[in-house]
Design a protein around this nucleic acid. Structure first.
Lengths: 340, 340
DNA sequence: CACTTTATGCAAAACGTTTTGTATCTGTCA
DNA sequence: TGACAGATACAAAACGTTTTGCATAAAGTG
């Protein structure tokens, strides 16, 4: 068990003072030491496998090089992965590490977690919230740089990033319109959340832009469960003049639409085309035929959040941004021309 | 922007020395200070909202109170959530924070991440690997306490935790046998991984324990994709003497079996009962009817890993364990008595 | 009453860095 | 030659804790 090598060891081995080692190894102060010495020190440090203790350097210059990511239930959802991965990749590229805490919906716990994060002197915090409701920032968070991830808030002094929900609705409709559909229904989420409003708005806007509209009977809003979506789709697809295509709030609901279609003896996409939102591969790839869907940009949102956070850490005067990231369509096999 | 309050501020406000504050606030040294003084100091500290700087205390006592969790692709998979959640919950209960890094399959990156973790003086590392292959421990990891999560290795000096795959196979078979099935097929994963071998072994063992066996035609091994499983199931279910039940390697493959059944006009569970493994709610709850399945204990594994890790951090002599956590069945609606 | 124990509080050192200020040396210029 | 600038290296302080050892006062013991 070789005990960890520290800057003193390097100094001793290189025959110089710790100051010189520190200077030689630092970007900004390298000029204060002779070029030869720099090279020498660096090779000695490499040889010894020296890496500065970040606890110590963090303590000294009030920068821990750690970012906190606090989320509600996010980690337990399938999207979480991509978000975290994006955040982590960006952090890693920029020399930071991520501390992830997960408070469920327990506010007291959340407060404790945030305090713990601050005890560790995180340089900034990403506050991730499932469903981009307008959210209020916990008092504990004030004081450190902070970014809202998958959430918005009224306070214009905090930056946030959410998916472009309206754009997602447009993209979904466009996919179906481009395939030639004229009677397009929608199975929406009945919850009062921006995603539901936004996707509907985009959906309708795209329709009307093409001189189309959505017949009231072809629109149904249910809970976001597969089961309820199935029942909703059953109702719509049983109509005498049923839609030839269905745009679903999310892939799991599209799964319900598949089930409804199968139950009615309708085949996808021949008899009914279906488009979802999320691009949840388990579902979208698992369905038969594969589900064309609008991808939510979780990975990009994660990346954006840490990059923006770090920008505001470096420069507290950096302009605050309310970002909306667009949602690209992912084509699989659930959309075809209507009619035989 | 009130600057952070430190121990000196508390000492000044309480009219005592920093030593006394530290003692009063510490579990172990509280006895060195008068009970009244303790109360006084504590109330002052609370009033000021004092919380010790963990960078400093970590530096002082070589304990950062941070645990590292390095994984390959784990975060991007739907199981990851539960694992992380379990690890985090346990860590949080024990006063630790989790640093999560994700290296994909890039070894060089992984080395860098581990080094970064060590620079931050993490007290221990959980090394999580998808698929519990026997794994070799990166040289970088040596030196800090370490637990293998969802993986095993040859080295008996490192503790590890994996699901009880054999038990999962047994549980799956038992579920179907108990419902009265005698002709049970299996759609397995053809990959050479412990999960595939273990589940098959348990499946066969349970059958034979009940005087049953699996007809070779009723066993098929494919890639774990929904599509390939569907084709495998199509083959098995098209046999003149088809099985009345199918045990599938995982829920996504069970989804394929549902599709095959539907395609053949067989209804689940009336004509064919189906059991999966994973308890992936998107799939298991989403399928119609709901999929009975064997849950993988990801949450528990995550918990176990940090608890064991912390035990070994406290006491480096703690006995090493190779744990296998059992997989409970989750009943939904995809199993019924065979025959009409 | 002298002596030892016990209770209580404080000063100082240490953890491993980074940075500021100062000292030494070389060479240049008046 | 004396003064001065420029290079180069080092000592020391600081970041915020925790802990060891010591000092003082109070209390118990012979």
């Amino acid at each position: 068990m070789t005990t960890k090598v520290n800057i003193k060891d390097v100094a001793k081995a290189a025959g110089v003072s710790v100051t010189t080692v520190s200077h030689a190894l630092s970007e900004t102060h390298r000029s204060r030491v002779n070029a030869e010495t720099v090279a020498h020190v660096q090779s000695v440090a490499d040889g010894l496998g020296y890496a500065p203790n970040r606890l110590a350097s963090g303590l000294r210059n009030q920068r821990s090089q750690i970012l906190g990511l606090v989320s509600d239930e996010i980690v337990t959802t399938p999207f979480a992965g991509a978000m975290l991965q994006g955040a982590q990749d960006a952090a890693s590229e920029l020399g930071y590490l991520l501390m992830v805490v997960n408070s469920g919906l327990d506010n007291e716990l959340e407060r404790r977690e945030i305090r713990a994060l601050k005890q560790h002197q995180v340089d900034g915090i990403i506050y991730a919230r499932m469903y981009n409701h307008s959210v209020s920032i916990p008092e504990e968070l004030r004081g450190s740089p902070i970014i809202l991830l998958d959430a918005t808030c009224d306070d214009p002094s905090v930056s946030s990033v959410v998916p472009d929900e309206v754009g997602a609705g447009v993209a979904g409709a466009e996919l179906l319109i481009a395939a030639g559909h004229r009677r397009i229904g929608m199975i929406n989420n009945h919850d009062d959340i921006p995603a539901a409003h936004g996707r509907l708005e985009g959906f309708l806007a795209a329709l009307s832009r093409h001189g189309l509209s959505c017949h009231p009977d072809h629109y149904v809003a249910t809970s976001p469960s597969t089961e309820d979506a199935r029942n909703g789709a059953l109702k719509v697809l049983s109509l005498p003049e049923r839609p030839t295509a269905l745009f679903c709030f999310r892939d799991q609901m599209a799964m319900g639409a598949y089930q409804a279609a199968a139950h009615l003896g309708l085949s996808v996409p021949k008899d009914v085309s279906i488009v979802g939102v999320d691009n949840l591969d388990i579902v979208a790839d698992g369905l038969w035929p594969g589900l064309s869907t609008i991808a939510l940009p979780h990975y990009e949102m994660g990346r954006w959040a840490v990059r923006k956070l770090l920008e505001e850490v470096e420069n507290s005067q950096a302009p605050r941004l309310q970002e909306r990231i667009s949602c690209p369509p992912v084509i699989r096999a659930s959309v075809a021309h209507p009619g035989h």
